[in-house]
Computed example of a mutant assay.
Amino acid sequence: MDFLYLQHRCAIKKDYPNLLDITAAGHLLAYETVYDGVREIKEEIDIDAAFDELVPLVIIQYYQTKEDFIDKELPNVFLYETAHSFDDFTLQPEEVSRLC
């Protein structure tokens, strides 16, 4: 049986709390490349994955302005196929409240 997991963002997140998001998402530092982003998988759901195991899906140009907040991103979205069960994930509670 195949599943697509989304994360429910923690209620204390500054940006977009309590909303669904792609699982294991994060921001790169100025000197990092998209390859460095694989660390977010380990940090947020405690799964070791190599970049070459990811299947590229899309790069989204995203721009949102709200009051005093500007969110301008270029998210690279990947698919990670795994045999891990739901119980194999250990969530980073300050980032992810649950997977669904």
Rank of each mutant, 00 (worst) to 15 (best):
K14L: 13
E73G: 11
F78I: 06
I70T: 12
L28M: 12
Q61D: 11
E40R: 08
L19D: 12
A30D: 12
L29R: 13
E81N: 10
R9F: 02
T33K: 14
L4P: 02
L6R: 01
R39E: 02
Q7A: 01
D46H: 08
V55E: 15
F78H: 01
L79C: 14
T90L: 12
V58A: 13
V77Q: 10
E44S: 04
K14F: 11
L99K: 00
K72M: 06
D2E: 14
D15M: 08
V58L: 09
D87Q: 08
H8S: 04
R9W: 03
Y31W: 10
L28G: 05
L4G: 02
C100K: 15
H84K: 10
S85L: 06
F51N: 02
Y16S: 13
D2G: 03
F51D: 07
D46C: 04
I47A: 04
T82W: 04
L20E: 15
D46N: 11
L4E: 14
T90M: 08
Q61E: 13
Q61M: 05
R98H: 11
H27Y: 15
E94T: 07
P17V: 12
D48K: 06
A50R: 14
A11H: 11
T65L: 09
R39C: 05
F3N: 08
L29I: 07
